[in-house]
Amino acid sequence: MTGINDNEAVDDLWDALDGTPGRPWLDDAVASVRKEPASIARHFPAAGRHTGRETLPAEPGWTADQAARAVLLDALLATPGGPDQVAELYRYGDSREKLAMLTAFSILPEAPDEQVVPILRDALRTNDTRLVAAALGPVADRLDDDAWRQGVLKCVFMGVPLAGIHGLHDRGDDGLALMLAGLAEERAAAGRDFPEDAAALLTDLRRDDRAGTGQERDAAPRPGDAG
């Protein structure tokens, strides 16, 4: 069986799940969702208990339950009215279900922005570092710049490693540099550490700036100034 949205990334996950113990369950669950989309409320939370939660050797970026949930979400999106159920599925998800959805959105362009963007904003409001980090994966391309910068700054604040943030150096701009510098100054004033990856990012953004106009960023306080 393959995905029905002509989605190669989903097809790859199907293939990676082939031969795993949970695959027969997943085939049945997908058939059930295609027939009765609302049944996803029951199948989606049960995925980990059937597929296990191990990393898939063929798709090292995915655990079996997350991959199965991505496949189920793909099936839901292909049903009439399915896209309208995405928000509710997320709203009633436990942390691991939410995490799976945030990850899956990155390979599901058919998930409509009007469903996905409010979910990303919801994830960024939480204090769960896993959800915040996942909302800043490739799916964060759907976020506006203000929300994205706040998300990155929140990662620095919470101590989430920045390496996992999609397109960080490409998307980082004057506005982000200004916010990072402000946090660095507060941390320095308090005698607290500023994460090394954030300091390196700030340095990079300023270096980029020297090649540009630099008006805005020159006004920003620099972490070294206070310490």
Binding site: R49, R53, S95, R96, N127, D128, T129, R130, K154, F157, M158, G159, V160, P161
Partner: peptide, 25 residues
């Protein structure tokens, strides 16, 4: 059939990067 005492902690995140131990936002 759902009690998960071994993997629960890693499933829920680690001490590092915790928003609670570090003060939250």
């Amino acid at each position: 059939g759902r009690l998960n005492l071994e993997d629960r902690q890693s499933a829920e995140g680690t001490f590092e990067g915790s928003s609670i131990l570090r003060g939250g936002s």
